[in-house]
Design a protein around this nucleic acid. Structure first.
Lengths: 343, 343
DNA sequence: TCTTAGCACTCTCGGGTTGAGAGTGCTAAA
DNA sequence: TTTAGCACTCTCAACCCGAGAGTGCTAAGA
C-alpha cells in the first residue's frame, strides 16, 4: 500500500518526535508542536491508517502512537533521506585521527570512541584484515630455550605472532636460515598453496609452515583479532534499558565473541565496502537483539583488507546521525588501509 | 573493641546469610535457620552491640540487620579464614589452561572467562609485562613502500610491534643490517641505557632506536597492553545494580582505561606477587566504586614480568570463593610466565 | 467527499489509605 | 545472664479514586 504525502509527513514527525522524547506521540501535540495546518482530528484519522498498515501502534488505548519496527524500517528506507555530518564535526573527527599517527591500535580505539560518542550508543570496531590472507614475510626469533616467536606478515599489513615450542633448542642462525628459505618459497601464496609446499622442506621448516597455514586459516574468520568496544555505558542510560533483563541481553551481544561472529558473518559479509546495513529489532533473527538496533558498516579495500564498524543502540535510535557517522568513520578507516598499503 | 566469640559467630552468620540471600537478616531467622542454642532475644542483644561498633546496620527500624562496609572488612580480615577451591574445580580449571596451549592471548581470555564464571562477577586480566623492560631482540620488516614494521622483543617475552614511516624507501637488506647492528649493541639494556647509545649510530639506526626507547617507556605503564574483560553481564544480574545509575557507574570503571590505570597504580603495585588485595566499597577513595567491591591479585615473576587479575562485584560478594579463585588463577598465570621464560 | 468540532469513553498514573507482617527494643521474670 | 512476652514502628503490597490524556465516533460544515 502506497502512503499519501500527508501520511508520510505524519509518520516521519511521529518517529522523529518519539526518537527525541521517548514518549508516545499524540495527535494534539503533533499539530501544536510542529504547527501543522490541519487539525488533530485529521491527524487521528491518518494515524488510524498508519496503525492499520502496521507502521504505528498504541501502547494502550489512551496513549499516543509509537512507531513499530516496520515503521522504523520504512522511515530509514524511504523517509529519512541522506543526512550528512556537519562540516565542523567532520573536521574535528578528521583532526583527531590525524593526530593518532600511524598506529593501527590507536586508530581502532579512536574510531570506537568517536562512534560511541557521536551516536550515544555502544560501538564496535574490528581491525582490518584480508579476506584471503597471502603470505608476505616471516621472521623467526629465538626467545629463550626452545621457545620461538614467529612473526608473520600478511598482505594488507596484518601482523600475526605466535609462540612455538620446538622439540629441541635451535640457534638464531638456524632459525634465520629457515625463515629466509620460507620467505623465498612462500611469497604471495595463500594458505592452500602453502600447504602443498610441504614436501620440499626440511623438518624445522615443515613445522613452521604448518603453523603458518594454521594461522592463516584462522585469520580467515571475520573476527580473528581484537574487537574494540566503547560506550557500553551509553546504552544503559537509555530508558528502554531500565529493565535489568533487557540491558543484560543487549550487553551479552557485545560480550560473546561467538554471537558477534555469527552476526557479522551473516550480515556484514554481504555488505559492500562503504555500505551501511541497519538491523532494526533483531530483524526476527536475533532474539538477543530484539530490543536493539544496530548500524553496521564495512571499511577497507576489497580484496586487500576489510574490517567492520558498528553501533548498537535502542530501536529508538537517531538513525540519521548514526548512519552518517558510521559511514564517515568507515571512510576514514578505509583511507587508513589504503595509506598503510600504498605509501 | 574486642568482639566476644558469640558476637563473632553472629556477625559471620549475618554476613554469610546476607551474601546468599541479599535480604536483611532477622534474629529469629538466624536462630531458626542455623539451629543456634540461644534465643532470638539474645541474638538481638548481641546485634545491638554489633550495630553500636559499626559492623551492622538496619535499613529501617523494623527490618533485620545488614553488614556495613566495616563489617565486611572485619569479616574478610578476621572471620573468614583461608578458604580453598574444591580439588575438582581446581583440576577442571587446570585442564582448561592445559588445553589452551602456548598462546598468551588464549590464556588471558581463558583466565578472564574462568574468573567471571567462578565468581559470578566481572573479571579483568592484564597481560604480563616487565616492570623494567630490557631489550632482547629486534626485527625490521619492509612491508610496502616506506612503511616498516618494527617488532621488538623484550625480556619476559613481551612482544611489541609498531609501524614506522621512513623519509625514503629502504630495502630489506639495509633494514636487516640495521637490525643486526642494533641487536648487537642493545642486548639486555634498559631504556635509559639505550637512549645513551645514540651517538655511535647512523641516521636510520638512530630513528629506529628513538622509537624503541619510546615503546619501552610506554610499556612501563601498568596498563600498556590489552585489557581482557569478561562477565560484564554478571554484575547486572545482581539486585544491587538494578538501579540504572549504579550499574552505569560500575561499568564505567571497566570501560575507562584512565580509571583502571589509576586504580592499578595505586593498589596493585603495592601488592606482592601471589598476594590478593580486597577493595570494599571503594575504600572511601574511589567514588565510582562506592557500590562495588574488587578483588585484585598480582601474578608473574617479580623483576621479570608481572600482570594483574581481578574481579568486580557487588559489596555483597562471596569473598571466600572469589579470593581463592583469584589466587588460584594468579598462580596458574605465574606458572605460565615461568614456563614461557625457562623452557 | 474531505475536514473538523464536539463528546463520550477508556485507560494510565500518581497519591492516599489500609491492613498484614516482620522485626525490633524494652521490661520483668527465671 | 538469658529469655519470654509484648507493645511499638515501619515497610510493603493491595486497593481505591480522581485527574488527565488521548482516543474513536458522529454529525455538521466546507
Amino acid at each position: 500500500m502506497q502512503l499519501g504525502d500527508r501520511q508520510k509527513l505524519i509518520l516521519a514527525l511521529v518517529i522523529r518526535d518519539y526518537i527525541e522524547n521517548a514518549q508516545p506521540v499524540g495527535s494534539h501535540h503533533l499539530v501544536e508542536y510542529y504547527s501543522l495546518d490541519f487539525s488533530p482530528a485529521t491527524v487521528r484519522n491518518e494515524m488510524v491508517s498508519l496503525t492499520e498498515v502496521g507502521y504505528l501502534r498504541q501502547p494502550h488505548i489512551s496513549a499516543g502512537r509509537v512507531p513499530t519496527e516496520e515503521g522504523y524500517r520504512y522511515f530509514v528506507r524511504q523517509l529519512m533521506g541522506q543526512t550528512d555530518l556537519p562540516v565542523q564535526t567532520k573536521r574535528t573527527i578528521t583532526h583527531q585521527f590525524y593526530q593518532a599517527g600511524h598506529d593501527v591500535d590507536q586508530w581502532m580505539r579512536l574510531a570506537a570512541s568517536i562512534l560511541a560518542h557521536q551516536s550515544q550508543g555502544a560501538s564496535l570496531v574490528t581491525a582490518p584484515h584480508p579476506e584471503e590472507a597471502r603470505f608476505k614475510h616471516l621472521e623467526l626469533i629465538a626467545t629463550l630455550g626452545r621457545q620461538v616467536l614467529m612473526v608473520l606478515v600478511l598482505t594488507g599489513g596484518e601482523v600475526r605472532q605466535q609462540m612455538l615450542a620446538l622439540a629441541e633448542p635451535v640457534s638464531q642462525e638456524q632459525l634465520s636460515t629457515a625463515a629466509s628459505t620460507l620467505n623465498q618459497h612462500c611469497q604471495g601464496l595463500n594458505s592452500s598453496a602453502l600447504a602443498a609446499l610441504s614436501a620440499q622442506l626440511d623438518a624445522l621448516e615443515q613445522d613452521v609452515l604448518k603453523l603458518i597455514v594454521e594461522e592463516m586459516e584462522h585469520s580467515r574468520a571475520v573476527l580473528s583479532g581484537e574487537v574494540y568496544r566503547d560506550g557500553l555505558t551509553n546504552v544503559l542510560a537509555e530508558p528502554e534499558f531500565a529493565e535489568l533483563g533487557v540491558a543484560r541481553r543487549a550487553l551479552r551481544v557485545f560480550e560473546e565473541r561467538a554471537f558477534l561472529e555469527d552476526l557479522l558473518n551473516r550480515t556484514i559479509l554481504t555488505t559492500n565496502v562503504g555500505g551501511v546495513q541497519v538491523l532494526i529489532g533483531g530483524e526476527d533473527t536475533w532474539e538477543e537483539l530484539r530490543e536493539c538496533s544496530m548500524v553496521l558498516g564495512r571499511y577497507g579495500v576489497p580484496g586487500l583488507a576489510t574490517g567492520t564498524v558498528g553501533v548498537l543502540g535502542p530501536i529508538r535510535m537517531a538513525y540519521g546521525r548514526t548512519i552518517s557517522t558510521v559511514r564517515f568513520v568507515a571512510g576514514l578507516l578505509s583511507d587508513m588501509v589504503v595509506e598503510m598499503n600504498l605509501e
